[in-house]
Structures are given as structure tokens and as C-alpha cells.
Amino acid sequence: MLLTGCEAPLNLEGIEQEKSKSVRRTDQLQALAKSKDVIIVVGSDGLVLTGSAPELNWQRQELESKPNFVAVETCPDDSLIALSMEHQLWISDDQGASWRSSDIPTSESLISVTCGPDNSYWATGSFTTLMSSHDKGANWTELSLNEDATISSIQFFDQDNAVAVGEFGFMARTEDGGQNWAIQEPIPNEFFPLGSHFSNASIGWVAGLGGTILSTTDGGLTWQKQATPTESPIYNFYANETRLFAFGDHGTVLEKQDDKWHKLDAPKVPVYLRAGKQIDEKRLLVSGGWGALFTVDI
């Protein structure tokens, strides 16, 4: 007996519909920032989303070289800098409409970026490396604090004072704008802060695995564990003048209220959340993995 058959036609309608969307369920969103009235979200494969509140009609841009962004920050002059895994800093002077790149000359892995009060650029990474540029990325200076740890974040308080934290509880401070750094006593138990935020040189928080958040009121000399309603990793903080939020795995959004952390009523999504910004009096915009980009009522 001769058996014959035919193959069903391939239906690409769903794929084409997904490609037509500004935000797709395959997008891995890593960070967001705000420049003037424009919100910028960056992710893997060169993805840049721009939108304005309150409508948040997102415009999608994919940079040609497909850099894998891990961080984005707004500088004091409202320019934007975005760090990619390819040892590049991407710079935008027009609220994310166009970008130029600066190669960062280091063999170390870089995972965080910030702007100094003087619009200098700072990128941090493995082997306690700090890369800095004071001429808009034309030239870079490499400084290692010679510790076998990754610096996960750096935060400036003013022109001279900043703090850096990282792997194995590493913590260091500068009082001369980053030219010299003094290593402090580490955060206890070799704690690895996935995210950190300091409201000033004395008061700060670090977060990590298991839903752990530690706080200090003496500049890191001592730390206290704070109760949180989750065991999911906490990746990042966002603070404005009056409120402090934290974001983590399994769609976790927390807010600190009266010295306690409370879980906000966010969509129940089984993905990581890495960043957020308050976009008006009632809404917090949150971004994360697998196209997670939504607002939370606050």
C-alpha cells in the first residue's frame, strides 16, 4: 500500500503579529531611566524602548550592532549612558533617539555604570575594577582596588564622596572624587549585594539572595537584617524624595513603609524584575524579563 500525505501550510501570522509589537514577550529588559519627560528602557540584542508618560506609547529601536545592555543611567546634564556586556558605553544626547558608542579598554567584566556629579562616566566590574572617563568617553582610566571581587554598584553623594559595594561584602569609599579609595570592613557573612541604595553617606540598604535586605545607619560600620515578605532574590532599588522600592525575581515589587517592607499588588508574573521608576503620583513603571513592562498602582 502506498501512503501519501501533505504538509500543512506554515502559519506565520502569530510570528508577524509579535514582531509588529513595540514590546515583545521575548524581550529581556534590564534597566530603565528617565531623561526630561522621556522614559528609556534597555535590554538584550540592542533593544532601546522610548516612551513618554502618561500614555507610554513605546517606540522600539534595535541598535545595529546588537549590544547586550545591562544598565542605563541619566547624567546631571540629562544625557544618557548605557553599559553593554561587550565592553562598550553607549551615549545619547537626545533622550534615546540616537546613540554613539565608546569602547572601554579593559579585560575585566563590567556590570554597572553611573554618572558623577560632574558628568563623568564610571563603570565597575570584576577584580574591583573602576573605569572612568572625564571627557565623554574619549579616554578611559582603569583603576583596580586589587581585591578578587566584583563591584556591583557605585553611588556618588557629591563631587568628592562616593561608595562602592560588591561581591563578598566588599565596600569602599572615596573622598576625592574617585582618585583614591579606602576599603572598609566588609558587609558581614560575605554578603553579595545584587543591588544597593544609599540615601546619604550614612544611611543605606543592600539586597541579595533569599529576599534579604540589610540596612545601615552608620555608613556600613554595622548592618541590620530587615524583614521582607519574600524569599526571592532582590536585584535593585529605586528611590525618590519620599519613597523607596525594591524589585526582584518572580515578579516581586516591594516598598519600604514605616521601617517594614511590604509587597505591592503587582501582576503575578513568573519573571525577574530589575528596574522601576515612579512616572506620576499614582503609578510605578516596572521592567524585567520576557517582555515584562507594566505599571503598578502606588
Rank of each mutant, 00 (worst) to 15 (best):
P188D: 00
N236M: 01
V42A: 03
D265N: 11
L49Q: 11
E18N: 15
C6Q: 15
F237K: 04
I298V: 06
Q61H: 13
V23L: 11
L63Y: 06
V113F: 09
G288R: 05
A227G: 06
A97R: 12
S132L: 00
W122S: 11
N189H: 08
H250N: 15
T230C: 07
T106A: 07
S52G: 15
I15D: 13
R173Q: 12
A97W: 04
S202G: 11
I111F: 14
I183F: 04
L47E: 09
F247R: 04
M85Y: 01
L285D: 09
V48K: 05
D160M: 08
G51Y: 05
A266D: 04
R243Q: 10
R274G: 09
E16Q: 15
G51C: 10
W58S: 12
H87I: 02
W181L: 08
Q95L: 12
I187T: 04
K66S: 09
G276L: 00
S79F: 06
T242K: 03
L221I: 12
T174H: 01
E281P: 06
S98Q: 09
N119T: 11
W223S: 02
G219W: 01
F198R: 13
T114K: 00
P233R: 01
L285W: 09
P229W: 06
L221P: 00
N57R: 14
D27S: 08
S199D: 12
T128N: 05
S153E: 10
I234M: 05
Q30C: 10
N119C: 11
E62H: 11
G219V: 07
S287M: 14
S79L: 05
D94M: 02
S102L: 03
A162K: 04
I81F: 04
K263R: 12
V72N: 03
G208L: 05
Q88L: 02
D258H: 13
E281F: 06
E73C: 07
V163E: 07
Y238Q: 02
W290Y: 15
I151Y: 01
A33L: 07
L273Q: 02
S196W: 04
L221M: 08
S232C: 09
S287R: 01
F156Y: 10
L214V: 07
A172S: 11
N189Q: 10
L221G: 06
A227C: 05
S22V: 14
M171C: 10
L264S: 06
E64L: 07
H262Q: 15
P186Y: 06
Q179R: 12
N161Y: 08
D27T: 11
E16K: 14
S35N: 03
I111Y: 14
N119R: 08
T230K: 00
D158C: 10
R100N: 09
D265Y: 02
L293S: 10
